[in-house]
Design a protein around this nucleic acid. Sequence first.
DNA 1: AGCCGGCCTGACCTTAACGTGAACGTGAAC
DNA 2: GTTCACGTTCACGTTAAGGTCAGGCCGGCT
Lengths: 167, 167
Amino acid sequence: MWYDGRQMSLPENPRPRLLRINEVAAETGMTTRRIRYYEEVGLLEPAARSDGDYRLYDASDLDRLQFIRDLRDDAGFSLAQIGQLLEDEAARERNRERLRQATNAAERGLYLADAQQRVERQIALLEAKAARLASMIDEAQARLARIQGHLAELDATEPMPAAVDTP
Amino acid sequence: MWYDGRQMSLPENPRPRLLRINEVAAETGMTTRRIRYYEEVGLLEPAARSDGDYRLYDASDLDRLQFIRDLRDDAGFSLAQIGQLLEDEAARERNRERLRQATNAAERGLYLADAQQRVERQIALLEAKAARLASMIDEAQARLARIQGHLAELDATEPMPAAVDTP
DNA sequence: AGCCGGCCTGACCTTAACGTGAACGTGAAC
DNA sequence: GTTCACGTTCACGTTAAGGTCAGGCCGGCT
């Protein structure tokens, strides 16, 4: 990649530091297979490929992978749902490019408005899930209260539930 | 609320009205196969079997099924995790029996204390999940804020994003 | 007694989400 | 230039969570 010293002219590059799949796996705690699988089902495309077709990931790919894992493990979404949440990878690629050479402000505005919509949808879905969870917690607490009520009732009529010990 | 078929003590039996699997399926919106599968993996045992080996479910079974579905669909737990949450079915059966002939108050107290512990564990797990979800929502809102910040920045330097129309 | 739909078990089929090689190319080191 | 760990694709295996018959009993009605 760099041995060909040419190109990437312009005012000094911030050295993107692309990672190969094994490093990504180490950093995210996922297996390489899993990362490739996510690509296979369209969840993320590596930022680039090396000369010899190695996958090369950048920081945004790492973030995306973490996000996918959170959505799966914490929020419990299926990969299909996650795919919908993240919208299609093609659009992301287009946007990535569009932003990179964000020639004018209008284009940037379009991209940002799009991103805003997506994030808003994500938040809505997450909040819906959180609401359902909250109501489950409410129910559980109601059950707990009833149980504790019964216990109190017992304690009132009985002297001791014989739990500590009586020599 | 689901595992205590208590009350109904003494005077006149309220005719338990047991349901066959198809009725349960209709009421819960699940398939019969699914209900049998949950039994197969130890999530719930029907309250009884008929003379000819038909599964017969009572109200507490219905509640438990609903609870299982909530845990799966809303909270996103796997059936294995749900199994752990609900503790083993054998214990439940023992408790059901223990309670039915709740001879003395001390026994009732033991049962209730056990139930209390279980519900407390359930609540803890649900709240942990809710917390993770909440932090994901926070992150998403942070992203949203950043995007909106960029948009505001654009609006400030640019006259119009050309969205309304200019004749 | 016969009917017929519901129920039973058992067996195989399916899909999602990976795991586990096989066979072969890469690339930085020695 | 050979080595050897790492990478690639392709293919088949596996587990969870059911779906879908098949063949054979119930059971309520006539």
